[in-house]
Deep mutational scan, measured.
Amino acid sequence: MGFKLLSKLLVYLTASIMAIASPLAFSVDSSGEYPTVSEIPVGEVRLYQIADGVWSHIATQSFDGAVYPSNGLIVRDGDELLLIDTAWGAKNTAALLAEIEKQIGLPVTRAVSTHFHDDRVGGVDVLRAAGVATYASPSTRRLAEVEGNEIPTHSLEGLSSSGDAVRFGPVELFYPGAAHSTDNLIVYVPSASVLYGGCAIYELSRTSAGNVADADLAEWPTSIERIQQHYPEAQFVIPGHGLPGGLDLLKHTTNVVKAHTNRSVVE
């Protein structure tokens, strides 16, 4: 069995187990497998329904001669939608809004960016022009300005110390501490036991640490421990890039980060 097929099978099995364990909360999309990078042309966006009122959005972007996937989250909030992270750029984010209108038909009224990198804030200006209120932590807003990236308009308070959590509509926002970046936030959907790890969490097929220019490698494993301790009931975990899975993604990420750190020390 090929690795790609095995990865998709694991996603399907995880979703099936969740649907059985929580039949009222989960209505997993039966329309197909989780979209992969090879299936999404740059400039297009796919939506994948995880649970009743919960979707991931998947886009792709060219970077350094390669094409990478990027995940975000959409959560229903009454007759409105909360968006977590842009679709990595203005063109993708405009396509995301169009796809949401086509498939869901509810307005996106608020959006949260989970850290300051372009795959999370690139497209904020498109959201703002569409009347979406954009939010991020003060740290993310400051770092985005320093980096020359787009800056969300509103500040999220109460997320300055490791372990801080605040309720934001249908989700809980959690600051686990520094990891992929010093400002990275985690998003949890309690009604569906869905954990969105953003770039602080890796997919299972990833074996290298990737972009760690703004990471705190020493603190990252401790931050992941905080996530595990705060959300032990999480059933569906979405990484910032690639295929979702279960809580095993947290341990896998820790292993990859520690291996990278150990290699760096040896070198």
Rank of each mutant, 00 (worst) to 15 (best):
Q235A: 10
S160T: 12
V266P: 11
L81Q: 00
S31L: 08
T207E: 15
L247T: 14
K4I: 11
S27P: 14
D29V: 09
S161I: 12
E157H: 10
S7V: 09
P41T: 12
L143S: 07
A192C: 05
Q229A: 13
K258D: 13
P138Q: 08
D118L: 06
D118E: 07
M1W: 02
M1I: 06
Q229H: 11
H241C: 01
I186E: 01
N184A: 01
G177T: 01
L250H: 04
I20F: 08
G78M: 07
P23T: 10
A15H: 13
G169E: 05
A234D: 01
G32E: 09
V212F: 06
V121A: 04
T134L: 01
A87C: 00
P69N: 15
L47D: 03
Y135W: 08
G131A: 07
E99A: 14
S161F: 12
A129M: 11
W220T: 00
S155W: 07
G78S: 08
G240R: 04
V75E: 02
S137C: 04
L6E: 15
V194E: 02
Y196K: 00
G163H: 07
V266A: 13
E233Q: 11
V11F: 09
G158A: 09
V42M: 07
L73R: 00
F168C: 04
A136P: 05
A144D: 04
Y12V: 09
G246K: 12
E203S: 03
L217P: 08
I186L: 09
G163Y: 07
G32C: 06
S70D: 00
E219P: 05
V54K: 01
V265S: 12
H260M: 05
P170L: 06
P190F: 09
D119F: 00
V112E: 05
V67P: 15
V187C: 02
E225N: 13
G72S: 03
A200I: 08
G2D: 10
L217A: 06
V54C: 02
G89T: 06
L83N: 00
N262V: 10
I186P: 00
G53D: 13
F174L: 09
H260W: 06
L81D: 00
A218Y: 11
G240I: 06
L143W: 09
Y12M: 13
A51Y: 08
T207G: 13
H241Y: 05
F236K: 08
E150T: 02
S191V: 09
P190A: 14
A218F: 10
T114L: 00
K91C: 05
G65W: 06
V75R: 02
R110V: 13
R128S: 10
G177K: 03
V212K: 06
H154I: 12
V121L: 05
Y202C: 05
D64F: 14
V124H: 06
G245C: 04
P232E: 08
I224W: 02
D183A: 01
A178Y: 07
P41C: 04
R226D: 01
P107W: 06
A129P: 03
L5W: 13
P190Q: 11
E44I: 07
D77R: 03
S162T: 09
V265I: 10
G89W: 02
F236L: 08
R120T: 00
G32M: 06
A129Q: 12
A259Y: 09
L243K: 13
I20P: 06
G198E: 02
I151Q: 09
W220Y: 07
G240C: 01
Y135V: 01
Q235F: 08
F116K: 01
F168K: 03
V45L: 04
A179G: 10
A90K: 09
A213L: 11
L6V: 14
V266Y: 13
D164Y: 10
D52E: 12
A98Y: 10
A66D: 15
V42N: 12
P232L: 09
A94V: 14
I84P: 00
V67M: 15
L81A: 07
F26Q: 15
D125V: 07
G123S: 04
L96E: 00
Y34Q: 15
S7D: 06
D29N: 09
Y48F: 11
P244V: 09
L24E: 12
Q49C: 06
M1E: 02
Q61Y: 08
I238Y: 03
G158K: 10
P190D: 11
Y68S: 09
A129F: 09
R76Y: 05
Q49M: 12
L97K: 00
D164Q: 15
A15D: 06
R120N: 00
A144V: 09
L204R: 14
G163P: 04
P232W: 08
N211F: 07
K251M: 14
N211G: 09
T93W: 00
P35D: 15
D119C: 02
F174K: 00
Y231R: 00
R206A: 15
W220S: 00
E225H: 09
F116S: 05
N255I: 10
Q103S: 14
I201A: 02
D125L: 07
R167K: 12
H180F: 01
P107N: 12
I74W: 01
S7I: 08
T36Q: 11
V146R: 13
S7K: 09
F63E: 13
N184V: 00
E99P: 04
W88Q: 00
V37R: 09
R110N: 15
N92Q: 06
E80K: 09
A144N: 04
A95V: 11
A200M: 07
S27W: 12
A95F: 15
A234V: 07
V112Y: 04
A19I: 15
S22Y: 07
K8S: 09
D216S: 09
E267S: 05
K258T: 13
S161R: 14
P221E: 09
A144P: 05
A234G: 05
L24A: 10
P221F: 06
G131T: 07
Y48Q: 15
V256F: 05
N184D: 05
R120S: 03
I50W: 05
G158C: 06
I227K: 03
P221H: 07
I58D: 02
P35V: 14
P69L: 15
P152H: 03
I224F: 03
H230M: 13
T109I: 11
T86N: 02
K8L: 05
E39W: 12
Y135C: 05
I201S: 05
P152Y: 00
E267T: 05
A87F: 01
S161C: 06
E39Y: 14
Q229L: 14
I100V: 11
P23A: 11
E157I: 13
P244E: 02
I58W: 15
L249W: 03
G105N: 09
L143K: 07
P138E: 08
P23M: 12
V108Y: 02
F174D: 01
E203R: 00
A95K: 14
E44Q: 10
G72A: 00
R263V: 13
A192S: 11
D77K: 04
P138K: 07
Y188E: 01
V124M: 09
G245D: 05
D119L: 00
L96T: 00
L127R: 01
Y231L: 00
T109D: 06
L10E: 13
D248S: 13
H115R: 03
D216E: 08
S113M: 05
S193M: 11
L24S: 13
D64Q: 08
E44A: 11
A129I: 08
V75Q: 03
E80W: 05
G210W: 03
L83D: 02
V257N: 08
C199Q: 00
E150F: 02
Q49T: 09
V126T: 08
S137Y: 03
G148K: 12
S193C: 05
A95Y: 15
V257C: 05
Y34I: 15
V124W: 04
H115P: 03
I100M: 06
R226N: 10
P170G: 08
S70T: 05
N211K: 08
S181P: 03
Q61W: 08
Y48W: 12
S27D: 10
V194S: 03
S264V: 10
S162Y: 13
S223W: 01
I40C: 06
V132D: 03
V75H: 01
A98F: 13
R110E: 09
V112W: 04
L73Q: 00
D52A: 11
R46F: 08
A218N: 12
S38I: 07
Y68H: 08
R110Y: 15
S70K: 00
G169I: 05
